[in-house]
């Protein structure tokens, strides 16, 4: 009984200390991460309840978008190699094949209307400032036209096989700026170009699942300015499913042994439990002779 009392005292002291240096200290040092808003409700320039006309959208996209953007799945290949595209625009313009699948509809419509406000980058590209975002605002289009474009982009987005989807989404959503060296993936925009474009080399994301953790990544990707005010990382506008795919991919690459760790862990603990029980029985037997 006395030994249980000693154990309880030690457990209490260790518990208090642990609470202070882990949960409590984290709470003090790190800002609270708000739940991600996947409806992007602050964006209200386009009435997204309008039903888009895919045919008209196709015509609009072919007239307005493919001069810069590739859309591989619709038969529009990239017009120039990545290095040249980066030299021309600052950053490689995205292939729009996945856009209709990855981006939230409201975000995508408002992005077309005004990219800078949708990305929350007006501190970097102020109206009338020296630098302009490479894509112009299509605020001259009617809401109906914008919704037509969105509808077309959704229609050309391919169904990606389950086993590839995490990587495909990551590459399309993050891979123009961020490398992932542990997956032997290099950002499509060349290093020097992206550094000049962003102001600093965007970090390699190989270990971000461990250094930032899933919870923070969810909040950060959804709205970078909330957690790191002034960052040049744009709000990407991924819908919930696409964001989960991105984070799942970061975990596949950054913590590739997770499932092995968890299954081996259970076996090791089971083995140790059997050892502990046997050791207890042996101790009882041995000590019965001396007490």
């Amino acid at each position: 009984m006395k030994e249980f009392k000693i154990l309880a005292i030690i457990a209490a002291l260790v518990g208090i200390t642990y609470y202070g240096i882990e949960p409590y200290a984290h709470h003090v040092m790190h800002p609270e991460v708000k739940a991600a808003d996947f409806t992007f409700k602050d964006l209200k320039n386009v009435d997204t309840s309008l039903a888009g006309n895919t045919e008209n959208g196709k015509a609009l996209v072919e007239a307005n978008c493919i001069a810069c953007h590739a859309i591989e799945t619709a038969g529009h290949p990239a017009l120039m190699p990545n290095a040249d595209a980066a030299a021309s625009y600052g950053v490689v313009p995205p292939d729009l094949s996945q856009a209709g699948r990855m981006y939230d509809k409201n975000y995508l419509a408002n992005f077309i209307f005004d990219p800078v406000s949708a990305m929350k980058l007006s501190h970097k590209y102020p109206v009338g400032g020296a630098k302009a975002f490479p894509m112009p605002a299509y605020n001259w289009m009617t809401p109906q036209e914008i919704m037509d474009v969105v509808s077309y982009l959704q229609s050309v987005a391919p169904k990606v096989a389950e086993k590839d989807v995490n990587k495909v989404t990551f590459d399309a959503a993050c891979g123009r700026c961020h490398s992932m060296s542990y997956a032997k993936f290099e950002a499509t925009t060349p290093k020097d170009a992206i550094k000049a474009y962003m102001g600093a080399t965007p970090p390699d994301l190989s270990q971000y699942i461990k250094s930032r953790k899933e919870h923070y990544l969810h909040g950060f990707i959804n709205d970078p300015q909330l957690l790191l005010a002034g960052t040049s990382m744009p709000r990407v506008g991924l819908n919930e499913k696409a964001q989960e795919e991105v984070i799942a991919y970061m975990e596949e690459v950054g913590d590739s042994k997770k499932s092995e760790r968890e299954s081996v862990g259970l076996w090791v603990m089971l083995y140790t439990l059997v050892f502990a029980i046997l050791a207890y029985l042996w101790k009882r037997k041995i000590w019965s002779e001396v007490h």
């Binding site: 140790t272 207890y280 042996w282």
Partner: peptide, 12 residues
């Protein structure tokens, strides 16, 4: 024998 018993639960 007592140490092994304590060790077992500690290792757990």
């Amino acid at each position: 024998s007592k140490d092994f018993f304590v060790l077992g639960f500690f290792l757990l």
